[in-house]
Design a protein around this nucleic acid. Sequence first.
DNA 1: ACTTTATGTAAAATATAATTGACTTATATT
DNA 2: AATATAAGTCAATTATATTTTACATAAAGT
Lengths: 69, 69
Amino acid sequence: MAKNLKMKSARVLNDLTQEALADRVNVTRQTINAIEKGDYNPTINLCKDICRVLGVTLNDLFWEENDNE
Amino acid sequence: MAKNLKMKSARVLNDLTQEALADRVNVTRQTINAIEKGDYNPTINLCKDICRVLGVTLNDLFWEENDNE
DNA sequence: ACTTTATGTAAAATATAATTGACTTATATT
DNA sequence: AATATAAGTCAATTATATTTTACATAAAGT
């Protein structure tokens, strides 16, 4: 799995640290770090929570048109 | 959590039974049933697999503009 | 140099997604 | 009425997402 740079970019754009984002969506900093690192398969509800906090949609952060996994 | 009627609708439109869809994304029929029923929190990779098989995007099936959980 | 803040990473424990096996109901077909 | 297919549900187990605790590194500020 590839890094989620779109998520990192959206987080930085919102001026949030990994820890601050983690607090907002009620997970640990390590979970956010792992998701951005890309070697994780988070639940859809967590993805949705993250998107809402960052003001984007699921497609913006987690959908790739050409995705071979 | 509410039923995922959009997913059920997209599945029917593709002429797939719960079991057929389950086979295509390598999970059990019960998992598909539970997701459609709504009392589940599937992983993002499974959601993406389902979307690809049904020819839709994450936003189409799993994103609601006004979602209070 | 020292401290602080943000990030990266890892091993062990806990919570929960997903499986397995089984039973039920509904609908359609013969 | 009897059979077959699809769907709904449940209890117990297994796989894995997430937590907890901990240590390491880099950059920035004092």
